[in-house]
């Protein structure tokens, strides 16, 4: 069963490298933010898979935290791109 997670991890790493192309060369800034959001979601699954490969149950907490951070990053980035500033105080 461990090699199933190993195959999943390698596949997810390959898809991350593929979507890195859009993140770096994306025509506009919005393509880049969307690609970073995609990479964030994939890193979460990669963390869970690696946690199972190395038998570390703590990795699930790390991926939960990373999911929250990725979500907040996307929101702040889209607010900045929409309004030009984040906290107007």
């Amino acid at each position: 069963m461990i090699d199933v997670f190993l195959a999943l991890g390698l596949l997810i790493a390959a898809t991350i490298l593929l979507s890195l192309y859009r993140a770096v060369l994306g025509p506009g800034v919005f393509n880049q933010v969307a690609a970073v959001n995609v990479i964030g979601t994939k890193v979460i699954v990669l963390l869970v898979a690696v946690g199972y490969i190395f038998d570390r149950p703590m990795f699930v907490d790390i991926s939960l935290l990373y999911a929250i951070l990725n979500f907040i990053a996307t929101l702040v980035m889209s607010k900045y791109l929409e309004r030009g500033e984040i906290c107007s105080a």
Binding site: G28, D61, E82
Partner: peptide, 29 residues
């Protein structure tokens, strides 16, 4: 913990996608 992770992603990903789409549309893309 895995259920919380799955449930949070199930809610957070569409909201993030909507936010970035709205920002792109309002700035004239």
């Amino acid at each position: 913990k895995l259920f919380f992770l799955m449930f949070f992603i199930f809610l957070a990903n569409p909201v993030g996608t909507h936010a970035i789409m709205k920002a792109a549309y309002l700035t004239g893309l």
